[in-house]
Design a protein around this nucleic acid. Sequence first.
DNA 1: CATCAGGTTGACGTTTACGTCCACGGGTGT
DNA 2: ACACCCGTGGACGTAAACGTCAACCTGATG
Lengths: 138, 138
Amino acid sequence: MNKHDADKRDLFAIADLAKEFGISTRAIRFYETKGLLKPDRVGSTRVFRRRDRARLILILRGKRLGFSLRDISEYLSLYDTDNSRTAQVQLLIEKVDERLGLLRSQLTDLETTIAELSEIRALADERIGPATDIDKAS
Amino acid sequence: MNKHDADKRDLFAIADLAKEFGISTRAIRFYETKGLLKPDRVGSTRVFRRRDRARLILILRGKRLGFSLRDISEYLSLYDTDNSRTAQVQLLIEKVDERLGLLRSQLTDLETTIAELSEIRALADERIGPATDIDKAS
DNA sequence: CATCAGGTTGACGTTTACGTCCACGGGTGT
DNA sequence: ACACCCGTGGACGTAAACGTCAACCTGATG
């Protein structure tokens, strides 16, 4: 909808991405030093393209999930790997499976936690009085 | 099943818990200094009861999910609050809701990630050849 | 031309979550 | 009495992930 729709553009300044994702430019530069991003350069100035923007999105999601940058780096390489030419597809499969295992156990943890909290919430809710038709009508 | 079934006992030494959960005694002491655990004392020696063991389980789960100790501390207080006597049940509800929101968005992130990885896995799997009856029979 | 916004590297500071090392005390087996 | 083993608290070290200057280089603009 937006004239500047980020998904359609192909070139981004470091500040563009920082603003778009609410992080600091320092952080972005840091990710680069860690090899998670590899923006092009024009002179010394970084120029980001869709590919790096996509990677950034994955990085941030990984962070929300509590993974370290090192973890995320490995994880990104799964996306990178040229599945069709890899000599070690088997190795790729193993890595993906390993990560899937981790994620699935996290999923279980999360579901348990959500269930527990929901119960607490229900109890508290009861205490304050369940919503009545009258309440809803107010 | 085990004679020493941990869930049935009521008293634990710091080393018991450390061993059971595969963490260091140093870590447990650290959690105490941060107020996450409040073991009884016999002289200067810590004595843990079921309550603190339960809290420890929650702490570790929180960590697996990528929360900070500070986050976890707040989270534990949700369990602590005496729902039936709280003067501010409403506040409790708000806090629980807030946390539930966080967890649910994590859940979404996780599901997305798992789906993406599954796809990658499927592609790689194809490349190496789908499992045949012969393969399975080998 | 002066200035100013935005970019760069480098060095150092900071917080979190422990690990490591230490000197010390208390109970136990021999 | 002596050697162990376990536990304790204090001090210091450390890795990760940035934040915070500082000093510098642009390119655009009034």
